[in-house]
Simulated assay, not measured.
Amino acid sequence: MIIKSSQTLVSEALKEVKTITADEALKLSNEGKCSLIDIREKGELDKMGRVENSNHIPRGMLEFWLDPEGPYFKSGKLDMSKDMVLFCAGGLRSALAAKTLKEMGFEKVSHINGGFAAISQSDFKII
C-alpha cells in the first residue's frame, strides 16, 4: 500500500486549481465578482480576525454546505454564480478544498496564495 503524503496531495492540487494573489482577490471582491470563502476553523477566526465581506464555511463542512442536493446545503449563503475564492491560514487547506470543489463540478474556483497570512499583509480589512 502506498500512502500519499499531505505535501504530495497539496502539490497535485496546486497543479489543478487556479491560484491568485491576495491583491487579485481584493480586486474581484471590490468589483463584486466573487464570493470570498474563509475555510479556517472558528477558533482561528476568533484568534486572528475575519476578513470583511467573507463567508465562513469551515473546511470540514465545505462539501456538505455547498451540495445543493444534500441535507446540510446552506441555501442563499453564497451567490453560486460568482467565482468562489477560498482561503485558509496559509494556502494549503484552501488548495485541497478548491480541488475538491472542482471535482464536485464547480468551475469558477480559485484559492489565495499564502492564505490569511497574505491577506493580512494586503489592503483587505480585517475585523
Rank of each mutant, 00 (worst) to 15 (best):
M1Y: 03
K4T: 10
K4R: 13
S5T: 15
S5D: 09
S6I: 14
T8N: 10
T8G: 02
L9W: 06
V10Y: 07
E12R: 04
A13E: 07
K15E: 15
K15I: 02
K15T: 13
K18P: 03
K18Y: 11
I20H: 03
I20D: 06
T21D: 07
D23Q: 13
E24P: 07
A25D: 04
K27M: 00
L28F: 10
L28N: 08
L28H: 09
N30Y: 00
K33E: 14
D38V: 03
D38K: 00
K42I: 11
G43N: 13
E44L: 06
D46Q: 12
D46S: 11
K47G: 00
M48T: 12
M48H: 08
G49S: 05
G49H: 01
R50P: 03
V51I: 14
H56A: 06
H56G: 01
I57Q: 00
R59S: 11
R59A: 10
G60N: 12
M61Q: 11
L62H: 05
E63M: 01
W65N: 02
W65C: 06
L66P: 02
D67N: 15
P71R: 13
P71N: 15
F73E: 09
F73G: 12
G76P: 09
G76T: 04
K77Y: 03
K77G: 00
M80Y: 09
K82S: 05
K82L: 13
K82N: 09
V85I: 15
V85N: 02
L86Y: 01
L86I: 06
C88L: 13
L92M: 14
R93Q: 14
R93K: 15
R93T: 11
R93W: 11
S94Q: 06
A97C: 04
A98Y: 02
T100N: 15
E103R: 12
M104S: 10
M104Q: 11
F106V: 01
F106Q: 00
F106S: 00
K108Y: 02
K108A: 04
V109M: 04
S110F: 05
H111F: 08
I112P: 08
F116E: 00
F116G: 03
I119C: 04
Q121R: 09
Q121E: 12
S122F: 02
S122T: 04
D123Q: 12
F124W: 08
K125Y: 00
I126V: 14
I126Y: 07
I127F: 08
